[in-house]
Amino acid sequence: MRSLVFGASAGLGRALARAFAARGHALVLLARDERDLEAEAKHLRTVHGTQVEWHAVDATDPAKVVQVLASLAREPPVSNLVFPLGMAFAGDDGALPLAATVALVNANLISVMATVGVFLPAMLAGNLGNVVGIGSVAALRGRSNNVAYAAAKRGLESYFESLRHRTAATGVRVQFYRLGYLDTQLTFGKRLPFPLASPQPVAERVARGLGRDLGCVTTPAYWRAVGVAVRCLPWPIFRRLKF
């Protein structure tokens, strides 16, 4: 079993790579910085004795991502795709310059779609595998604070919905995790209204969920209530909220 983790060098991606390695998966790690990838790959090989291939890629450049993926070793075939990557900008209030908007949508959405596009035919042919999307509760209802980010993540959710439909009659399983606040660099030091979840248990949960037809899962569980509340707020109230 070989698993590809896109965004593997920090936070949830690192925890996922470790959870998979502990289960004996061979790994393909993708992230921006080769120094981080090299260190993580050494750790996984030394501690778990697993086979690790890594490539430094820039998720804002999907064409380059596809090019790198074409160079992957053919064996063993990649049967799990996991996408714990995300990119957010401060000042994402609807007036981002074009380059920033393109980079943001590329990193959060297009590179994921491009990667799935590379592997899906073989997975369908083998009638086996998992595609795991990682979304955000931030996409539940559009807000002025992260206009483009939420749009990209909402797009991702729609894409995974379609993907689940496409693979419904096959052995390929699609899972989509809508995550609340995670204790990573993205949230570090911020004052947030809800507690942070540690990436490790989330990673364990994702690893346990492989092979199951879960659809969309919101985790940690209390975010389901938050989600319902946020979506049900009547517009006259919602419009006044600043968050």
């Binding site: 060098s9 920090a10 690192r14 910085d33 660099q185 570090f188």
Partner: peptide, 9 residues
């Protein structure tokens, strides 16, 4: 002031 870096950058 506490920082908790996780990347070589």
């Amino acid at each position: 002031a506490l920082q908790r870096p996780d990347r070589y950058a």
